[in-house]
């Protein structure tokens, strides 16, 4: 399943970069995230509650920055396991200059793979649930960037 979107921020690229590159931001964007542990400069772990409404469970995630080009490109993998299932998300975020000199345009693409019990049993709802989950995460991320940039660099 692939999802994508874009958003423009009224802040320069280096400011936006600094926020999205921060594990704390990623953690805050995930639903009910807790136990953030930064394990290396390019990896961190923690758990989040993934799902929709009552179909929801705690997943332990390992985040790994697979590739980065500061200020412009980030590839982040999140591998989660819980409730007899796996949720693996590969995300590519590209930053580019926006419409004005101080604006940044963020494009994101996410590829999600779900395995185990959720993949089979919730099959009929998976597209829609994954779509909603991924969009919520990026909505949160955008809000966090806006809040962060509003607070000043």
């Amino acid at each position: 399943m692939e999802f994508q979107g874009n958003v423009e921020f009224a802040a320069p690229r280096e400011v936006v970069w600094k926020i999205i590159r921060d594990p704390t931001t990623v953690a805050k964007a995930m639903p009910d995230f807790r136990d953030l542990v930064v394990t290396s400069p390019t990896s961190f772990t923690g758990s989040a509650k993934v799902g929709v409404s009552v179909i929801r469970g705690s997943f332990r995630f390992q985040f790994q920055i697979e590739e980065e080009n500061p200020g412009s490109f980030l590839r982040l993998s999140a591998r989660g396991r819980g409730i007899g299932s796996s949720v693996d998300i590969q995300t590519r975020v590209t930053l580019a200059d926006g419409g004005s000199p101080t604006a940044t345009r963020m494009e994101w693409k996410a590829e999600a793979q779900v395995g185990g019990a959720l993949a089979g049993i919730a099959q009929r709802l998976l597209d829609q649930a994954a779509d909603r989950t991924v969009r919520d995460i990026f909505t949160n991320l955008s809000r966090l960037v806006r809040e962060g940039t509003a607070a000043g660099p």
Binding site: V54, I55, R56, G57, I83, G84, A117, I121
Partner: peptide
């Protein structure tokens, strides 16, 4: 609806 989901541990209120 709820109990089958709980049985599968996909829901756990």
């Amino acid at each position: 609806s709820l109990l089958p989901l709980m049985k599968l541990r996909l829901a756990s209120p």
